[in-house]
Amino acid sequence: METSESPFVFKAIAAVALLLLLAPTVVTVVAAFNEGNYLQFPPQGLSLRWIEAFLTGPLFRESFTFSFRLAFCATLISTVLGTAAALALVRLRFRGREVLRAVMLAPIVLPGMVLGLALLSFYAAIQMGLFRTFSGLLLAHVLVTLPFVIATVGAALARFDRSLEEAARSLGAGPVRAFFDVTMRVTAQGILAGATFAFIVSFGQFDISLFLATSEMRPLPVALYDSIRYRTDPTIAAAGVFAISTVFLSMTLVHVLTNRKGKRAAPKG
C-alpha cells in the first residue's frame, strides 16, 4: 500500500497547522506553572503560586463549580431529548424529515451571540421567569448542546442492526422493553459519547452565555473573559489547566467510545 507517503510539503504545512492549534494550550499550561508575572522563554522557574491563587481565590473557583453544575444539568436534559429525537429521525421516513433534521442541527452554525440576544429578548417578552435566571441560561445550554447529542447518537443508531430489536419484539418484549434491553445497551457507547460531547460544549460555551449570564451566575468562560480584559496574570492560565484537563479527559473518552470498530458492547445479563 502506498499509504504513508504524503508529500513533504503537506507534512510541513500540517506541522505548522498543529503548532498553531496546540501551542496556545501548551503555552498556557507552562504559564500556569511559571514563576514570573509573564512567561519568559526559556521559562524562569517552576512555581505553584498561580495554581494556589486559583484554588484559594473565590473568583474562578465559584465559576468553575457553576459551569460544572450548569453543564451537568444541560447534559442530562439534552441527552434524554436528543437520544429520543435521534431515534425517531433514524427510524422514521416522513416528509420534511430533512428540514427538521437541519433545524435540529442549526445551532451549530447559527451565530451563538445572536441566539443569546434572541433568547434574552424572548425571555424579557414572555415574562415567565426565564429572564436572567438559571432556568433561562440552562435552556439556552440545552439548545446548543442538543445538536451534538442528536448527531452523535444518530450516527451510532445508524450503525445499529435493527434486526436485534425486532428479534426481541418477536420474542414478546414490548417496544419500551426492547428499547432499553437491546437498543440502549448496544448503542450505549454512542449515547455516552453524545452526553460527553454535550458536557464539553456546555462547559466551554461562551457566545450564548455572554448575554444570558449575570454577575451572580457567571460560567467559567465568561468569568475568564471578564478578567482577561483587564489583566492577563497567570491565574487565568491556572484556571485553564483545570479546564484543559476536563476537556482532554472527556475527548479521549468520546474518541474511545465512537471509534471502537466492530466490537459491539455485548449485552450482559
Binding site: 498543529l18 501551542a23 496556545p24 466551554g204 467559567l220 482577561i228
Partner: peptide, 30 residues
C-alpha cells in the same frame, strides 16, 4: 491526531486566546 484536533476545538476560547497573547504579544510575547 484526531484527539489533538478535537480537544483543541473544544478548549475554552479565552484560554486559547490567553495562550495566543503569550505567544504573539507585542511586548513580552515569545
Amino acid at each position: 491526531l484526531s484527539i489533538l484536533v478535537l480537544a483543541s476545538m473544544q478548549l475554552d476560547m479565552t484560554i486559547r486566546l490567553y495562550g495566543m497573547i503569550v505567544i504573539f504579544g507585542n511586548n513580552n510575547g515569545l
